[in-house]
Every structure is written in C-alpha cells, then in structure tokens.
Simulated assay, not measured.
Amino acid sequence: MAISMKHEIRERMPECVLDDPVGDVEASLDLDGIPDDVREYARTRLGETDETKSLMVDELRELIYQRGDFEPLSMDDDYLLRFLRARNFKLEPAYKLLENYVHFRERNINYYEGVSPTDLSHIGDADILNVYPYREQTGRRIITLKLGKWDPNTTPVDELFTATLAVLEAGIMEPRAQILGGVCIIDLEGLSMTHAWHITPSTVSKVIEIMVTSFPYKISAIHILHESWIFEKIFTMFKPLLPARYKENCYFHGDDLSSLHKHIESKYLPSVYGGTRPEYSYEQWFISLTRDPKVVKQMQLLGYATSGPYDPNEKKTAALAEGTSN
C-alpha cells in the first residue's frame, strides 16, 4: 500500500494514567473537577498553573477588546480558557484559534442555530458516530466514526458535520478533555466509491477546519482501521493539508486489531475492536445532554435548541405510531 503503516509505537512522552476500572461506565460529562493527575499533566505539558490561567485569560480578553476583530460568544474565564489550553497557553495562537472558531461558526451557522442534538440520534442509531461512556487508559474520551456505515443517500454530509460538532462542543465542556484531548477511531470497513464521490474538496476543507484550525479540541491520536485503496485516494486530498503533528499521531492498523491494542488497551475497547467492553448506545449521550442543566445551558449558549429531559421512549412511541399509520 502507498500509505506507510505505523505499527511500531514511537518513544512516548509520559502520559496521564487514570484509575478507570472496567465496568465504571457513566454517560455524562464531568464539568466540575479536574483529577490531581490531570492537573499535574496540565502543569508539566501545558504550563498551566493557577497563576498562568489567571494571567493568560486576562491577556487574551484584553487582546480581544484591543483588536476588535470579532465578538466571541462569551468572555467568561472558563470559555476563554478552552482556547488557551488548546494552544498550550500561547497567546497569539490562542487568539487566532478563537478568531477562526468565531468565523467558522458565522460561515456554518446552520450547524448550530436551532439544531436539536436529540434530533440527530438517527446517526447514532446507524452506528456511524459514537462516543463511549468510558475513557481509555490515559483518561481520554474515544470517538468512533464508521464511515462505511454512512449512507450518503439518506444522511447528507452536512448532517455528519452537524452531529460531529454537537459531540465535540459537548465534549469540550469537560476541563479534562480540554487538557488531555481525545482519541479518534476511524473505521473504514465497508467504505466504497459511493462514499468517495461525496467527499468533495469543500468537505475536506471543513474537516481540516474542525480538526486543525478552527476548533478548540486537541486530537491526541487518530487510529485508522480497515483502510483500502479507496481510502488512499481520499487521503491524498487530506495529507497535504495536515500539519506534521497530525501526521505523526495518525496510525494505520489495517485489519490488525492487535496493532490498535498497542495504543489503546483492549479492556478499554468494545468487543467489535477486540476488547472486553460491551457496546453502548450513542443515545445515552443525548440523554445525558438533556438531563444536566449545566450542559443544556451551555449548549443553548452555542445556539442549539436543547431542552430536556429527553425521553428516548418518545421516539420509539412516535416510530410505532408512524408504522401503524402506514
């Protein structure tokens, strides 16, 4: 294959390892606290201390006022802090990231305004996009994208962007996610030319904006499974646009799950990836979003039409009623 397979693990920097016993599953967001080991990780890897946070948030806020290039959704400390963490407390890069984020929202407001995340549950039902209600061994969330299960004829690519952004916007509310970043598994089993035809240069541009330039979420590793020559064709559009750090953190495993387990221990993976965890429905995340008033409030600030609590039985009842009427 033309793509270089990275089956060996490079010498790794010390990671933040959390106690996450198997069976400790909770589909909710931790908005209140930062574990001590994550706090130490932030200090050593990001240069984050109480003094640094206070100083840099004030400097970023002052820079926004001085330049007047854009108007953020919020000037609160916690909101600005996520952009500083995403750029390791470097002022100018954090400012640029926030500016890019504001402009991305303006250009793609249809991904936010009036969108109810619970209305996107069909994407989870199709097992295209998922977030596991547990973390891997370094304390990071795992997001999976199974492109081969995506039917472009019934789910437009813009719906995938909308759902992905809703997941990321919710996830980035967690302080530890802002510090540690997340892990992404892209499963390409079943990928066909039909999928390739729907991945246009415009689609590639938006993916790069979300991954690299315009969203305050750090992806610590991208794991590609079941890639084929079709993916190679698609990847040629992305590769020139990816910074070196993303290329270095992108791992290609083919059909070799043992290669994946060198990076994510099997006990933190579901059985479909050779792990010991059961499958969990993406719908649990929707339930969590609407049952936490703090999450609902922040999602509403972003423009989402989020209300709650969400009752999944309502969807089932409506589906049964529709089937009966037909």
Rank of each mutant, 00 (worst) to 15 (best):
L81V: 11
K146T: 15
M56S: 12
K96C: 09
L165S: 10
A126M: 15
T118N: 05
G114D: 00
Y101A: 09
M75Y: 15
P72W: 08
Y134G: 00
D58C: 03
R135E: 05
G68S: 08
D77V: 10
L97N: 04
R135F: 04
F161R: 10
T164P: 09
L63A: 11
L145I: 15
F89G: 06
N100K: 10
K149S: 11
S54E: 08
P117M: 09
S121T: 15
I109T: 11
L97Q: 04
R140P: 03
P152G: 08
L81C: 05
D69L: 08
D158W: 02
F104N: 00
A163N: 07
I128A: 02
L73C: 01
F104Y: 11
N153E: 14
I128F: 00
F70K: 09
Y111C: 15
D77W: 01
T52K: 06
N88A: 13
K96F: 03
V167E: 07
V157D: 06
L129E: 04
L91W: 08
D125T: 12
V131N: 11
H103Q: 10
D125A: 12
P152N: 03
R67V: 03
M56N: 00
W150R: 10
T52H: 04
Y65G: 11
T144H: 12
T155A: 01
E92Q: 15
E71V: 15
N108W: 04
D58Q: 11
L160E: 01
L84C: 07
R87W: 04
E159G: 02
Y79E: 09
G124L: 03
S74P: 00
P93L: 07
D69N: 05
W150A: 02
P72C: 09
A163F: 07
Y101C: 07
E59Y: 01
V57P: 03
A126E: 13
S121Y: 14
E106C: 06
K149F: 11
Y112G: 03
R105K: 11
A163P: 02
Y112N: 00
E159S: 12
L165W: 05
A163G: 05
L160H: 00
Y134T: 00
I123D: 06
P156Q: 08
Y65I: 15
M56Y: 05
E106N: 12
V131M: 13
I64K: 09
R107E: 12
Y101Q: 01
E159D: 14
L55C: 00
M56F: 09
H103L: 07
E113D: 12
Y111R: 04
R85P: 10
F89T: 08
R135M: 05
I109M: 11
P133F: 11
Y132L: 14
P133G: 07
A86R: 01
V102Y: 06
D119E: 15
D78Y: 04
I123T: 07
T52R: 10
D127Y: 09
D69I: 00
A86Y: 03
H122F: 14
K53N: 08
V131R: 14
P156H: 07
I64V: 14
N110H: 14
Y112Q: 03
Y95N: 06
F104I: 00
L81N: 06
D76T: 03
T154C: 12
T118P: 02
D78L: 11
